[in-house]
Nucleic acid binder design. Sequence first.
DNA 1: TTGAAAGCGCTAACAC
DNA 2: GTGTTAGCGCTTTCAA
Lengths: 336, 336
Amino acid sequence: MSSVTIKDIAKLAGVSHTTVSRALNDSPLINPETKERIKAIAGSLQYTPNYSARSLVLDRSYNLGLFFSTLRTGTSAGFLYEAIKGVNDVIKDEYNLIVRGIDDYKSFHQVNRKSFDGIIVMSQSASDQPFIEYAAEKGIPLIVLNREIEDVQVMNVVPDDQSGAFRMTEYLIQQGHRRIAIIEGKEGFKSTQSRRDGYLEALRKYHVAFSEAMSAQGNYDLESGYAAMNRLLDLPERPTAVFCCNDDMALGAVKAITERGLKVPDDLSVVGFDDQLFSAFMTPALTTIRRPIEEMSRAGAAKLLAFIESKQLEHETVYFHTELVIRDSVKTIAGG
Amino acid sequence: MSSVTIKDIAKLAGVSHTTVSRALNDSPLINPETKERIKAIAGSLQYTPNYSARSLVLDRSYNLGLFFSTLRTGTSAGFLYEAIKGVNDVIKDEYNLIVRGIDDYKSFHQVNRKSFDGIIVMSQSASDQPFIEYAAEKGIPLIVLNREIEDVQVMNVVPDDQSGAFRMTEYLIQQGHRRIAIIEGKEGFKSTQSRRDGYLEALRKYHVAFSEAMSAQGNYDLESGYAAMNRLLDLPERPTAVFCCNDDMALGAVKAITERGLKVPDDLSVVGFDDQLFSAFMTPALTTIRRPIEEMSRAGAAKLLAFIESKQLEHETVYFHTELVIRDSVKTIAGG
DNA sequence: TTGAAAGCGCTAACAC
DNA sequence: GTGTTAGCGCTTTCAA
C-alpha cells in the first residue's frame, strides 16, 4: 500500500539512502557496480520517486502551464487542439502540461514560481494583460504566444495577422471585387483589431472605398458568422465578397448564403482566416489564411524549455508568417 | 526573491509557525482574533502556500490527469475540446488539470498515487487497456470515459455507440435506402467496432443484405473519409447512402462526391456520427448522431471528484444516450 | 488556545 | 565512494 522510498531500497542494498539517491540520479560520485545493484533493486521494487518531495527540495514543480484566455467561448476547437498538440510535442516526459483558462481564476494566487516552472500563455485578448503582468512580476519563466505584448518584457511568438488580412483583402481586390464586406471577430481581441487593420490597409492602398455598412460584428463562432452574414444579405446593396475573420464564421456565412438560395462563390465570394482542419473540405473549399498555431506553439514551448534549463534570457519577439491559401470560394469578377 | 513562508509570518505575528498553519487552514483550534491577525499579515505579504510541501505531508498532489489515447492522430479537435471543457467546468480551483496522450509515455513510471489524485481516461481504443490496468492496480482513483471496460473494476461512463449506429442505419433504411455503405473508423478502436455492430444489426433486423464491397476502412480523419468515399464511388454498383463513422470522415466523403459532379443528398445520401460543432453548418447540414462528450466528461469528472473526497467507491457503468440528429444530408427514395 | 518537536521523501553539503 | 547530517515548507501529534 504505502509506496517504497529510497530508504527501503537503502535497507535492502545495505547502503545509506544518500547513496541510493546518487545511484538513481546517475551521479558521478558513485561506484558503477553499487549503482547497478541499487538500480536493480529499485526496479524490482517498482520504485517511483515522490515528485512532491523532490520538488520541495529542488524548488521545481515540473509543471508547465498552458493558459488560454478562456476555455469557455471564443476559443475554437481547432485552436485548442493545435496549441496543445504543438506544446505537447516538445515538452519532455518529466513535465506535466497543465491546461487552464485564465478566466477560470478567481485570483492569481496559485500562480507562482513554486507551482509552475514555466508558463505559456496562448493569448487571444488584451484581457489577458493582468495575468501576464502578474506572472512576469512573479518572475515565472513566461512566453506569450499569438498576441503581441508591448509593455511587459516577455518572450513573444506571434503571427503577422495584419499582413495576412492585408494579403487576403488585396487578393479579393485583384479578383475584381470592390464591395468587400468584413465579418469581424470578438470584440477586445487583439486579432480582431489586427485583421480589421489589414483589411482597411488594403482598401486604402487600392483606393477602394470603405463603408461602415460593409462591416458586421461577429465573435468568432459559427453562429455569429451566420447571423452577421444574414445582416449583410439584408443590405440593399450586397457585397460581392465577404472577408470572415476566421473560418468558423466563414462556415456560418456560407450556410446563411446557401439558405437564401445563393451560391458560393458564384453569387458571393467568401474567405476565412485560420485555415482550420475542415476548411479544405468545405463545399466549396475555403480560401483562407493559414496561421501556424501548432508551429508557433512548438517553437514557443521549445524556447521556454531552453530558457528554463539555461536561464539564458532573450526577450525578442518572433514573427511567424501567415500564408494565403487559395481554394475555391472566390470568384473572379469583371472590373479587376 | 525567495518566497514568504509560514515562518516569516509567524515571526511577524509573534506566534509559532504551527499557529500560522492553523490560521491559514481555518482550523477550529485557534482564537478567531489571532486568526484574523495572521490572515491579514499573510495577505499583506502576498503569501502563497508551497504546494510541494503541502503535497508531501498531505500525500495529495492536487493533480488530476486527463488522458487521451493519443494526442497525435485519431483524436479530433472537437473531441479534445469538448472533453477538456467538460472536465475543466467541474474541477475545483485547487486542482491542476494535466492533459496528456497515453502514447506519449515510454513507461508508466510517473503514473502513481503521489503524482495524481485522480485520473480520467478518455479512452478511444483497446490499446489503452494496459494503462488503465496499471492505474487501477496502483490504486489511483480512476474513471474511464467513452469506452466500456469489462475486466477491470473502474468507474465507467460511456455512450451507447452501437444503438446510435443502429438508429442511424435504421433511419436510412426507413428512408428507402438499401445499398448502404459504411466508412469505418480507425482499426482497433472500440468505437469502430460498436458502430459497425450497430450498422450490421440494423441491416440484419430489416433483412437488408450486407456486402463486403459496401465497407471501406477509414481512420476517423478527413482525408481517410475522402479516400474511402472515392473507393466507394469507383464501385460498379454505387451505394445510395453512406454511413460515415464520424463527422470528419463525412466531410471528406461529401468532398469526394462533390468533386465528381454529384450532389448530396440528391445523388447520394451521407450521414455521420458525433455531431461535431461544424456539422450543422456544412452544406448540406449533416444528419448525424450526437454523442455527448462534454456531458460525459462533466459527469465523469464530478464522479471522480466525489470519489476522491469521500472515498465512497462505486464501480457502476453509466450509459449516456446518443441521439439521432436529422438534418439535410439524406434523401428519401422510392422503395421505402 | 498555543507551542515544541517530529517527520513527510528527497537532495546536498560536508566529513571521512 | 560512501555515510552523516541538515533542511526544503508544511501539517500534526503531543504536551502544556
